[in-house]
Design a protein around this nucleic acid. Structure first.
Lengths: 109, 109
DNA sequence: ACACTATATGATAAAATTGCAATATAGTCA
DNA sequence: TGACTATATTGCAATTTTATCATATAGTGT
């Protein structure tokens, strides 16, 4: 149990554990976007988007490319599709489980 | 951009974004463990472990089975191996990238 | 019933994260 | 140079998360 190593891992997970940042990553799955585009797509404050991009970048999840005034961000991680796939199936399972709980409780009561 | 849906997703990710909780999940990859076993393996306070298990369970990541005084926990998610695999490759890439930065800066300076 | 063990829960202070507003930086164009 | 646009950074109050201590619950054996 090397706790330092787990801290390193959780810092990456933490970067994804915020709705705005997760939306950004999801958004970038279909190609690079400028900060302005992300602000529009996500309908969030400019400073929030900028800060979120900084956190994602410093954790190695995205990379940037400057072009004049604009900065374009894109994904740096290959396994992101698997990741979202996994997340979706977890949510699906959770919903199914909660449904079962509701069903069994209504049968009893 | 359905923000509520992303909140749902991030609550699952958040459950994994803490060193103790991630250690627990990793620990359970080789089979179910009792709370006492986890306390010993992780060398953490009993209440921390218990609370962590509660968070993981309520997010549908683990399940429990009672046997006398003991409660055994096990993984409920199938894609956890992929998840850790992905995490490891991300960390590896980050370290590689940081190495490159160090190398290129020492060449210049 | 009592003592004992395993686990869960509650209260709470400290630490980390969030979101907004303001400000700074830096590239472009006149 | 000055005005303008895109992006980054800073300050800070509000919220959330964490860790610890104390207490509660619940099963077991006497």
């Amino acid at each position: 149990m090397n706790k330092e190593f787990y801290k390193l891992k959780t810092s990456i997970i933490k970067a994804l554990s915020n709705p705005i940042r997760l939306m950004i990553v999801d958004c970038l799955r279909d190609g690079e976007k400028s900060v302005t585009q992300l602000i529009e797509l996500l309908d969030e404050e400019q400073s929030n988007i900028s800060k979120s991009l900084g956190i994602l970048k410093s954790n190695g999840l995205i990379k940037d490319r400057k072009e004049g005034l604009n900065v374009f961000y894109s994904l740096k991680i290959c396994c992101i599709n698997q990741f979202f796939c996994c997340l979706d199936s977890m949510i699906e399972e959770n919903i199914k489980y909660q449904q079962e709980l509701i069903n069994s409780s209504t049968k009893k009561g």
